[in-house]
Amino acid sequence: MLNPAAFFLNQAEASSQQIHFIYNLKGRRVEYVNVAYERVLHGSQAKVNDELPTLLAHLPPDDLPWLRRCWQLWVQGRLSDEVEVRLLRPGKPDQWLCLLPSWQQDADGMIWLGGTLRDITVGKRAQQTNVKYSSKKNTVLEILAHDLAGAFVSLQQLASYVREEMSAQTSPQVSEMLHLMQNTSQRGVQLIRDLMNQEFLESATIPLKRERVDLREKVQQCLEPFQRMGGREAKQLSWHLPPEPVYADVDTSKLMQVVSNLVSNALKFTPDEGRITVRVETAPDGVLITVADEGIGIPAALQPLLFERFTKARRPGLRGEPTTGLGLSLCQTIVSLHQGTLTVVSVEGQGSTFTVKLPKAASSTS
């Protein structure tokens, strides 16, 4: 008579979308893999060991140093966290798998590596799309806040100047309209300021969602909206990225908010003929993102106060753009949550360079 428990277990295994496997480390072969291997990776359950070299050949070359490090930890029984693995598929989008590893040593000293692989491609694509558009949204908000606030301030100053120049015989209605123009402009500036502060504050309080990313790609995506907006910003801004990947474990959306904020600040304090340069590079003990400008610089007496909340070092931009002194404080908070540092070197009249230093991707270290 068929055991009901065994029947339902077999049915569940037959319909599972998760690959379960056991690997004999000494024998260097897969001793067991369930039928989900055929559905998820389109191989043959009976030929899994013959197909393994081909499967491994689909791992991206850039990921191999990190994956070798994960393998070293795994065979030592020290890999407990889930690992996301990317597979290249010629002519098709990449496939993403999530490995939940296990390690076991039997009474004879044999080491068995096991685990579960599940396909996370759909979720990964959705996450990447969300991060991409979230970063763009933050950058566009910075640009709009910068340009709109500057326009409102100019309008406010213009209305004030006209009121001062008016003669006593000017119609009271004109004076009232100018007064209304000033108040409307002031409310517009305050609304933009409140919106940006709220957006940044909410982002800083949400727990980090880290992933291993190539910072070159993310920084370029963050900066491209500045170029597409055209105008003065597109002419002033440039970036320099290394030819090799620069990996770090970061919350992309939050970190790109920091980059966008630093670039926006640089634009505020850089004359039209000045340049802003963004660089991504590696260092012996981490990775660096620098935003350097040829602006008015920061007085030495104000530099120690820059990263305080509502700092006394806040100043309006060269074109009247408002500032609350919250931005750099929140930037430092986000960088600190990444176990990084945010520093500045500035000379008054010559410009400023802000440097974000982050740890390299944890699994890429030896």
Rank of each mutant, 00 (worst) to 15 (best):
A149I: 03
A168G: 04
Q156Y: 09
K136L: 15
A126E: 05
Q128V: 05
V140S: 04
L158K: 06
K124P: 00
L141F: 11
S134L: 12
T139R: 06
V153C: 04
N138K: 04
L148Y: 11
Y161G: 04
E142K: 00
K137P: 05
K136V: 13
Q156W: 07
I143K: 06
S160G: 12
V131W: 11
A126W: 00
V131M: 08
S154V: 09
Q157G: 11
K132Q: 12
Y161L: 14
S160N: 07
F152A: 03
V131F: 07
M166S: 11
S134T: 07
S154M: 14
K136A: 14
A149V: 05
F152P: 00
K136D: 04
Q127T: 01
S154K: 15
V153W: 01
Q128A: 04
H146W: 02
K136T: 08
E142P: 04
F152C: 07
S167F: 10
T170A: 15
I143C: 06
T139Q: 07
R163A: 13
N130S: 12
N138A: 14
Q127C: 00
K124M: 08
L144T: 07
S134F: 05
A145V: 03
Q169M: 14
S135G: 07
D147C: 05
R163F: 06
S134I: 04
R125L: 10
L144C: 12
A168K: 09
D147F: 09
Y161Q: 14
Q127Y: 08
N130H: 10
G150Y: 02
Q127D: 07
L158G: 03
Q127N: 06
T129W: 09
A151E: 14
E142R: 05
S154L: 15
A145Y: 04
S154H: 15
K124I: 01
E142S: 02
A168S: 13
Q157Y: 11
R163M: 13
H146F: 02
A149D: 10
T129N: 12
A149K: 00
V131D: 13
N138L: 13
E165A: 08
Q157H: 06
V153T: 10
V162R: 05
